[in-house]
Structure formats: C-alpha cells, structure tokens
Design a protein around this nucleic acid. Sequence first.
DNA 1: GCAATATACTAGGACATCCAAGGGTTTGGA
DNA 2: TCCAAACCCTTGGATGTCCTAGTATATTGC
Lengths: 168, 168
Amino acid sequence: MGSPLPRDPIADAQRNWERHGWGEVAAPMAAITAIMRTQQILLARIEGVLKPFGLTFARYELLALLSFARSGALPMNKASALLQVHPTSVTNAVDRLEKAALVVRSPHPTDGRTTLIELTAEGRTLAKRATTALNNEVFGRSGFGDEDVEHLIRVLGDFRKAAGDFTD
Amino acid sequence: MGSPLPRDPIADAQRNWERHGWGEVAAPMAAITAIMRTQQILLARIEGVLKPFGLTFARYELLALLSFARSGALPMNKASALLQVHPTSVTNAVDRLEKAALVVRSPHPTDGRTTLIELTAEGRTLAKRATTALNNEVFGRSGFGDEDVEHLIRVLGDFRKAAGDFTD
DNA sequence: GCAATATACTAGGACATCCAAGGGTTTGGA
DNA sequence: TCCAAACCCTTGGATGTCCTAGTATATTGC
C-alpha cells in the first residue's frame, strides 16, 4: 500500500507518549498498537491467498469450521459462538456462501428457531483446497520463530481467557 | 457478545489442524488466529472508551497523530503513510472529523496536489481528553505483564519490519 | 393451559477498509 | 518548451463488523 517508512511509526508513538508524561502506559500502548497493525498485515496476506478461491477470511473460517464438524453441519448460533463474531456477521457470511453454493441452510429438526448450515460437496472441496493454500503460503511462512509462536499462543491465550472468551 | 465458551476455540482448531495432518503449521495457525481475535477484543474495548467522545479508533488515531505534529497539521498522504492505512480511509476519517469541527482541510502552500489536515482547538482538546481516557481505561489495564509487553513489542516489531512496514 | 420471558435469525443502518477509476497538479526527460 | 509519467485526493462499490429492532419459536412459571 505504501513504501517502507524510514522509522517505525509505533516506536515513534511510544516516544511521543513518554515525552508527554504517559511513560507508565507507553509500552502497553505500543504493544497494543503493534497487535492491531500485525492483524492488518496478516489479514491482507490471508485475503490475498483466498481471493483466487473466491473466498474472504470470514467465509473461509466458516467453511473450515463446518468441515471439522462431524456431520458437516452446525446451527448458526453455534457457529457465531465458536467464531466469536456477531450473529449478523454469520448471517452475512452464510448469505454469500449459499449464493456460491458452498453451504445450504436447512431447518433444525427439533427447534424451529434454529437454522443449520450445511456444507455442500463443493464447499467441502473448496475448504480443503483453500486450507492447503493457506497452510503453505501463510501459516507455513508466518515469519515467527517457533519459540515466539509458543509465547504468542500462551500470552494471547491468557489474555483471551481473562477477557472472557472461554473458561477451560 | 456471548457468554464464555467451555473450551478455547483456538486450541480446538489447533488440535483439528494436527488431527488432519497439518501438525507442522498448526502452531503458527493458532498464533495468528489468536492475534486476530485479540485485536478484535482490544478494538472493542477501545471503541467502547471512545464512544462517549463521539470518536472511533480510526478517527482518534488521526487526531492523536495531528496532536503530536509540531504545527498541528499534516498532509493527508503523510497521515496515510504514518497510520499505515489506505488513502481513502484517511479521506473518510477526515470527512467525519471535519463535520465534527475537530479538524480543517487547508490547501498546501506550495503543492497544489496536497491537502493539509489541521487540528482545531476543539480537536486538540478532545484528543487530549480521549487520550487520558484510553490510557487510564485500556492501556493502563491491558492485562499483559510487563515482560510480555516487551516481548510483544519486540516480536511484532520484527514481524512488521520483515513485512516491509519500515526500514530503520 | 396461557401469558411472560428467553432464544434464534434477519433486516436496516452506521462505520471502517480496500480496490479501481477519474480529475487536477507537478515533475522530468525529449 | 511541452507532453508523458508520477503523484494526490476523492468518488463509487464491495465486504466485514457491530448495534438496534422486529418476527418467529421455545421455555418457564403461575
């Protein structure tokens, strides 16, 4: 999107924070800002790999989730909970996936309120192909060292748990 | 948005990856997914704090950036580069900030292509108040330990540099 | 058994991000 | 000098996220 900057803008922000008397929180501010930016970079890479498949990350996540469900189907509310996104976001993703014939909506057998999302054969195939691409082109070349990966999993896991994501 | 899950969905995904023969990349996948989710949680907290000020994070970042510029003004392309977002995102943010009378657009004195964004008095005041709130309610209570913060800054800094964000 | 409450999904709206294109301004090489 | 290439900002369109209702179906409690 732009050429490299001569200096790290987040390190600069951290210095500005310190210079203005916020030294106490300058480091956490920098860490949080770095997380935001890293997410942006990673998302762009992922979307780039998924584009040829006609998928976005949101839709891919749903496909992948369904592909791991024993029956290949899940209630929408379950998907919303597991993906940790708003129910309307799932509705949105399912609308588009259904248009692409990758999933189908079907009524829940016993609960009339619930809608099941079911993977189609094409959906399952595409999920597999997209997963291979992502693993080869993004996750397999994350740029993070093995130790850093372990550290990230632990630190962010603790954070997410403290934030109320899960009990465990 | 939902109540806590009984189990960590990312740890489950990692197990699924391993179970399907992707053990090599399961850990980086989990780390990356954790970064995405952590960003989502942090963004929600930040937006929650900024809402009373009538600000979003994107607009706040622009205000904060301007407040650190000596003259309180910056060219739009400079802001785009420093915030590392697409130029159209800056246009969008400036449109709204200008409607709220927090910034003003003015022509660049020597380059007719460039537009300067300038902080108004209210903009400067609001930036200061919002910064205090964010520092007290988010950055000051990040939930990350001091060592983890240092580690995050280093690891993500290396990642961003490798991704081409800056030279330094 | 029936009304009140809780749940599930969807429609509409506000925002943010990016990409593709278009119009105006500068710069640089022929 | 002058025109093509480069640069800057904006408009319009596609997506995604969330929130706030609104409708339909289940569950609960009296």
